[in-house]
Protein backbone atom coordinates (compact mmCIF):
# COMPACT_ATOMS: atom_id res chain seq x y z
CA UNK A 1 0.00 0.00 0.00
CA UNK A 2 2.35 2.72 -1.18
CA UNK A 3 -0.38 4.41 -3.21
CA UNK A 4 -0.66 7.30 -0.75
CA UNK A 5 3.02 8.20 -1.31
CA UNK A 6 2.50 7.84 -5.05
CA UNK A 7 -0.63 10.04 -4.91
CA UNK A 8 1.33 12.73 -3.05
CA UNK A 9 4.11 12.52 -5.64
CA UNK A 10 1.55 12.92 -8.45
CA UNK A 11 0.07 15.97 -6.71
CA UNK A 12 3.56 17.48 -6.24
CA UNK A 13 4.47 16.85 -9.87
CA UNK A 14 1.17 18.30 -11.10
CA UNK A 15 1.67 21.45 -8.99
CA UNK A 16 5.18 21.86 -10.35
CA UNK A 17 4.01 21.50 -13.95
CA UNK A 18 1.04 23.82 -13.36
CA UNK A 19 3.31 26.52 -11.96
CA UNK A 20 5.58 26.15 -15.00
CA UNK A 21 2.46 26.84 -17.07
CA UNK A 22 1.47 30.09 -15.39
CA UNK A 23 -0.02 28.70 -12.20
CA UNK A 24 -3.36 27.85 -13.77
CA UNK A 25 -5.90 25.61 -12.06
CA UNK A 26 -5.47 21.91 -12.80
CA UNK A 27 -8.64 20.21 -14.02
CA UNK A 28 -7.34 16.80 -15.03
CA UNK A 29 -4.11 14.87 -14.55
CA UNK A 30 -3.15 12.03 -16.87
CA UNK A 31 -0.91 9.32 -15.46
CA UNK A 32 0.45 6.29 -17.29
CA UNK A 33 0.44 3.25 -15.00
CA UNK A 34 2.46 0.30 -16.23
CA UNK A 35 1.05 -3.18 -15.72
CA UNK A 36 3.99 -4.13 -13.51
CA UNK A 37 4.54 -0.74 -11.88
CA UNK A 38 3.08 -2.24 -8.71
CA UNK A 39 0.38 0.40 -8.36
CA UNK A 40 -3.26 -0.47 -7.76
CA UNK A 41 -5.51 1.91 -9.70
CA UNK A 42 -8.44 1.86 -7.23
CA UNK A 43 -6.22 2.53 -4.25
CA UNK A 44 -4.39 5.28 -6.10
CA UNK A 45 -7.62 7.07 -7.04
CA UNK A 46 -8.87 6.81 -3.47
CA UNK A 47 -5.59 8.15 -2.04
CA UNK A 48 -5.40 10.94 -4.59
CA UNK A 49 -8.86 12.18 -3.63
CA UNK A 50 -7.78 12.16 0.00
CA UNK A 51 -4.47 13.90 -0.50
CA UNK A 52 -5.82 16.81 -2.60
CA UNK A 53 -8.98 17.49 -0.57
CA UNK A 54 -9.14 21.17 0.49
CA UNK A 55 -6.00 22.01 -1.49
CA UNK A 56 -5.47 23.87 -4.77
CA UNK A 57 -5.90 20.53 -6.56
CA UNK A 58 -9.29 19.74 -4.99
CA UNK A 59 -11.62 18.65 -7.76
CA UNK A 60 -8.85 17.73 -10.20
CA UNK A 61 -9.65 14.46 -11.93
CA UNK A 62 -7.04 11.74 -11.98
CA UNK A 63 -7.12 9.94 -15.32
CA UNK A 64 -5.18 6.68 -15.17
CA UNK A 65 -4.02 5.16 -18.41
CA UNK A 66 -3.07 1.50 -17.96
CA UNK A 67 -0.01 0.51 -20.00
CA UNK A 68 0.18 -3.23 -20.73
CA UNK A 69 3.51 -5.01 -20.76
CA UNK A 70 4.97 -5.00 -24.28
CA UNK A 71 7.94 -6.96 -25.53
CA UNK A 72 9.97 -6.30 -28.67
CA UNK A 73 11.53 -9.25 -30.44
CA UNK A 74 15.30 -8.88 -30.82
CA UNK A 75 15.26 -10.75 -34.14
CA UNK A 76 12.30 -9.40 -36.10
CA UNK A 77 11.44 -6.28 -33.97
CA UNK A 78 7.83 -7.42 -33.71
CA UNK A 79 6.13 -5.99 -30.62
CA UNK A 80 3.69 -8.10 -28.65
CA UNK A 81 1.95 -8.50 -25.31
CA UNK A 82 3.56 -11.56 -23.74
CA UNK A 83 1.52 -14.29 -22.11
CA UNK A 84 2.84 -14.57 -18.55
CA UNK A 85 6.04 -12.78 -19.57
CA UNK A 86 7.10 -15.50 -22.03
CA UNK A 87 9.56 -13.97 -24.44
CA UNK A 88 8.65 -16.29 -27.36
CA UNK A 89 7.88 -14.08 -30.35
CA UNK A 90 4.50 -14.97 -31.88
CA UNK A 91 5.71 -13.70 -35.28
CA UNK A 92 9.05 -15.45 -35.77
CA UNK A 93 9.30 -17.86 -32.82
CA UNK A 94 12.64 -16.65 -31.49
CA UNK A 95 13.03 -16.17 -27.76
CA UNK A 96 15.15 -13.04 -27.40
CA UNK A 97 12.66 -10.31 -26.60
CA UNK A 98 13.02 -7.41 -24.21
CA UNK A 99 10.43 -5.38 -22.36
CA UNK A 100 9.77 -1.99 -23.91
CA UNK A 101 6.71 -0.94 -21.92
CA UNK A 102 4.79 -1.86 -18.81
CA UNK A 103 6.89 -0.75 -15.85
CA UNK A 104 6.38 3.00 -16.16
CA UNK A 105 4.65 5.32 -13.74
CA UNK A 106 4.59 8.73 -15.29
CA UNK A 107 2.65 11.93 -15.75
CA UNK A 108 1.37 12.11 -19.33
CA UNK A 109 -0.71 15.30 -19.49
CA UNK A 110 -2.36 18.06 -17.52
CA UNK A 111 -5.58 19.77 -18.45
CA UNK A 112 -5.41 23.37 -17.26
CA UNK A 113 -8.13 25.96 -16.89
Amino acid sequence: MHELSIAQSIADAAREQASLNGGRRVLRIGVRVGEISGVAADALEFCFGMTVRDTDLDGAVLELEPVPVRYRCASCRHEFHPVEFLADCPACGSTGASMVAGDELGLSFLELE
Binding site: Q17, N21, V31, G106, L110, E111
Partner: peptide
Protein backbone atom coordinates in the same frame (compact mmCIF):
# COMPACT_ATOMS: atom_id res chain seq x y z
CA UNK B 1 -9.09 24.66 -21.06
CA UNK B 2 -5.74 23.61 -22.43
CA UNK B 3 -4.13 20.21 -22.49
CA UNK B 4 -0.40 20.19 -21.82
CA UNK B 5 1.58 17.06 -22.65
CA UNK B 6 3.99 16.13 -19.89
CA UNK B 7 6.63 13.42 -19.79
CA UNK B 8 7.70 13.10 -16.21
CA UNK B 9 8.31 10.23 -13.87
CA UNK B 10 5.88 10.42 -10.98
CA UNK B 11 8.67 9.62 -8.53
CA UNK B 12 10.92 12.38 -9.87
CA UNK B 13 11.71 13.81 -6.42
CA UNK B 14 12.69 10.37 -5.11
Amino acid sequence: TERVEVRQNVLKEN
